[in-house]
Nucleic acid binder design. Structure first.
Length: 126
RNA sequence: CCAGUCAGUCGGAUAGUUGCUUUUUUAAAAGAGGAAAGUCUGGGCAUCAUGGGAAUAUGGCGCUGGCUAACGGCCAGACAGCGUGAGCUGAUGGAGAGUGCAGCAGAGAGGAGACCGCCAUCUUUCGAGAUGGUAAGGGUGAAAGGGUGCGGUAAGAGCGCACCGCGUUUCUAGUGAUAGAGAUGGCAUGGUAAACCCCGCCAGAUGCAAGACCAAAUAGGAGAAGCACAUAAUGUAUUUCCACAUUGUUUCUCGGGUAGGUUGCUUGAGAGGCUUAGUAAUAAGUCUCCUAGAUGAAUAGCUAUCGACAACAGAACCCAGCUUAUAGACUGACUGGUACU
């Protein structure tokens, strides 16, 4: 269980169930950047969870054929998510990041910028 | 110095900082590979099936000896082929059990055959023809029923002899594959088994999403207790009444096993050093060490220096191998060539 309450006080954790991912895929709002695709939705009220924010990472085998690439993309997305979501994320929200081809090659600072911008656009939509 | 062969090692390093997983002493320690890959073999482990044995079918393996838990693996050797050489390559049992296959060419393709030839006799229009013998030479073909030489003959021929090859057999060396030597036969026995097949050996099926445990929910089930005011049915031999049981309903318990959770899950045919045995693979003894265990899934981001554009590539139950991918760096032994001493 990941935690980073030194910086913000918000707790952050990962999505565990396949059902959660499907729920976001169906009803969640989506924003596409060059680096990745982000989906978010408010958590269902009946779910009992201590965490403020939850997120997951999806990497398809179709885009990244080799296991080395898949792992690398997963790590990069997970890293920026834990850095930025706990500052800029909204409480009681679930997020899903989906990897694209550019995620592997793009600069790390650009990835961070993209995520911040995407979060801003999503919150303005709500 | 150049070219090459074999064996082995490594697979970016150091420091800082932010963060992740596991363990426990809550602060430390440990944290992807030589192939983690392909899932191709052999095992462990688990469940299911199975009285024991043999045969058949199907599939696999196939020179000899050794090693190993086992193998289709490894080591050593034999034989054959390739290379100037160090060395490399080889599914390498059986074609005297049987069946099959071989286009075209060619006279003839497996107990064969005579197109051009060669020789003898006869005929002759002197061009040649007929009959017979023969297989040295030519021609065809991937392959022509042993090879070379001498004798022999009308011409020839294993027809005879010598050497080589082949078959049979004896002796010697070796655990053996096999090798060497002698005797003898006198050419008969061509290729293909990665064609069917024969012989010998091996194999029950499914894979950790195996399996085990805890356990909301739901379907159907078992037991106990309560309720039955009223109504109906069946049973307790028969009729009436009463009572009881079942069918009803409620609650609880058992059982069940879904979602979910825990476990299997990493101390093992383990790694390293030394000694002994062995050419070696390996074995025995002894000392030291504990070295990922996640489960939407941990190894990353940034900075600096060196290096350099640095490959192939990411554990998912575990071992022993095989196969495939791999930039580059290094070590040792050896071979061939060139130059110098």
């Amino acid at each position: 269980m990941m935690s980073n309450d030194i910086v913000t006080g918000k707790t952050i954790g990962s999505l565990k169930k396949r059902a959660d991912f499907l729920r976001l895929q169906k009803g969640g709002q989506k924003w596409i950047t060059k680096s990745f695709i982000i989906q978010h939705k408010e958590r269902a009220s009946e779910v009992e969870c201590d965490l403020d924010i939850r997120f997951g990472v999806t990497i398809t085998k179709r885009i990244f054929k080799r296991a080395v690439d898949r792992n690398r993309v997963k790590r990069r997305l997970r890293h920026i998510a834990s850095d930025i979501l706990c500052v800029h994320g909204v409480s009681q929200m679930d997020y899903v990041l989906i990897g694209r081809k550019e995620t592997l090659t793009r600069d790390f600072t650009d990835l961070q910028k993209d995520l911040k911008w995407a979060l801003k656009r999503l919150s303005s939509q709500v």
